[in-house]
Design a protein around this nucleic acid. Structure first.
Lengths: 67, 67
DNA sequence: AGCAAAAGTGCACTGTATTGCACTTTTAAA
DNA sequence: TTTAAAAGTGCAATACAGTGCACTTTTGCT
């Protein structure tokens, strides 16, 4: 499961639209759409802005841990 | 602690140079240097390439977990 | 089914990440 | 302490991420 899907699922949990997420995070709507649909290659800052609004954070962890 | 520092620390654990990490990951040396020194705003793919070589992965998790 | 809202996409422009090169600074080993 | 290897940095070129706009497709509600 890629990062975009995780963002999308989490956003739906909050019952907000891509447009609202874009506004709240300060990221362009087009960028949010691309991120969620798995297109493109966002920068860390873009991903962090979006994740932050959704109460999530980007972390680097040792590989192959369950969940 | 930012992502660059985590990469740097992890790399030192493996006793390899930035140059070796760059070669192994397929990322430019200049980019590795910027990443580790906290300059710039890498893309997910760049960070994933480097993390992969170091046996790490980028994950999105619910915020405010310990560690 | 009908329809409005939400999501996905092609295009084009702007800004910036990636990169190599050449150089300086720092580190660590003899 | 010397000094070679490793790390940090300014500059410039290229590739591509971020974005708005206009449009199509999908979703989900009545």
């Amino acid at each position: 499961m890629h990062l975009g899907s995780i963002v999308k699922e989490r956003r739906k949990l909050f019952n907000i639209t891509q447009e609202t997420l874009a506004e709240m995070s300060g990221v362009g709507l087009r960028t949010v759409k691309q991120l969620e649909s798995g297109k493109g290659n966002p920068t860390i800052i873009t991903l962090e802005k979006v994740a932050d609004v959704l109460g999530m954070q980007l972390v680097l962890q040792i590989k192959s841990m369950n969940q």
